Simulated assay, not measured.
Amino acid sequence: LDLNGKIVVITGACGALGVAVVNKLCGLGARVAALDIIEPDAAVNCFDAPEGQVSYFKCDSADEVQVAAAFSAITEKLGAPDTVCCHTGIVHVAGVESYTLEDFDELMRVNLRGTFVVAQAATKLWLAEGAQGNLIFTSSWVQDVPWPELTPYNTSKSGMKAMMRGFARELASRGIRANAVAPGIVGAGMALKMYTEDAAYRARTDCAIPLGRLQSPESVANAFAFLVSDMSSYMTGSVLTIDGGCSLYPNI
């Protein structure tokens, strides 16, 4: 894969998966605008990429004013992006009977509103310039197979899948594509912490992955690299599921 000349925006860039994606894309030659909510001084130490390939912009992806300002700054510094990755997401773990409405509202704000705000901003930019565009949404295998104690999260990912397909259907005739990556249970972040510390979660997880091992962040980054590349140019409205077989059957 050769991504030289590609300009890619990714939200949630400083999380474990985001960092892996940024490093992969930069390693293949892309220039990346990395967006997250942490302070710039902390963000500069997140990435392993040649100098000048990553530009960081502090931005709350659910805030339309901040997103508009970020896109303006990105375009001024790097040029209009070829691909925009709506990657920001959060998760809270609780049974449906104890899940607070505050946590529910926060999750939907970040996972669904944030995704829509960023995808809409990118769409407006491409349409205004008469340019082709490529949207990538980060969904999850749980969009189709509910995972216990994550019901609002499962719901947000199902909604994201529907949102992605809506963008793809509406915008295909105007040169804008939309696809999603649906990872499985990744050995990073909260999933790895729970796998390491919670014996019941570990047992359930071990039963849920037919390939028998946690997913590496690099395997997710490889999927992004493919969707950013011209090799995926005839794809729109598709979900690229890379989950080790978790979604094959509800064995949890």
Rank of each mutant, 00 (worst) to 15 (best):
I10A: 08
G133C: 03
G189W: 06
C207E: 13
S247E: 00
I136Y: 11
V181W: 05
N154V: 02
C26V: 14
R174C: 02
P148E: 13
W147T: 03
F71D: 11
C246M: 09
T83P: 00
G237E: 10
Q53C: 09
I185R: 02
E97M: 05
N134E: 04
H92W: 09
F104P: 01
R202F: 12
R174M: 07
V84W: 11
E218H: 12
G79V: 07
S173C: 03
A30C: 04
S139E: 01
C207N: 15
A80G: 03
T11M: 06
Y201R: 01
G79I: 11
L135F: 08
T155W: 01
A69C: 10
L112V: 15
Q215D: 05
F137K: 07
L227S: 07
L28P: 02
L35K: 08
A221L: 11
T155I: 09
A182Q: 11
N179Q: 07
A128N: 09
V181E: 04
C207T: 02
D82F: 02
A13S: 15
E129Y: 02
V44G: 00
A121Q: 14
C59E: 05
A80R: 14
A128M: 01
T83H: 02
P148C: 01
S238L: 04
A49Y: 10
G159M: 09
P50R: 14
A182S: 15
K124Y: 07
A191N: 15
K157Q: 02
A225F: 05
C26K: 01
L112Q: 12
V9F: 13
W141L: 01
D144K: 08
N222G: 07
T75Q: 14
G166M: 12
W141M: 11
M231A: 13
V181T: 10
T75W: 11
D105S: 15
T123Q: 06
A221S: 10
L211M: 14
N4R: 15
A162M: 13
A43K: 11
C59H: 11
C14L: 07
A73F: 05
E76F: 03
N23M: 10
A49L: 09
E64H: 13
A180Y: 12
S139K: 05
P40A: 15
T100G: 10
D60V: 11
L3K: 01
V32S: 05
Q132F: 00
G130A: 02
G52F: 09
E218C: 02
E129Q: 15
T196M: 06
A13D: 04
Y234V: 08
F47R: 06
V181Q: 02
V22F: 11
N45Y: 13
N4V: 01
S140Y: 03
A131V: 00
N251H: 10
L240V: 14
K193L: 02
V32Y: 09
P217A: 14
Y249G: 03
D103Y: 05
T11G: 10
G29T: 07
Q120A: 13
G27Q: 07
Y99L: 02
F226T: 05
Y249F: 13
I37H: 00
F104L: 14
M235S: 12
S247I: 00
N222C: 06
L3T: 01
L35N: 09
G187P: 08
S55F: 13
I136V: 13
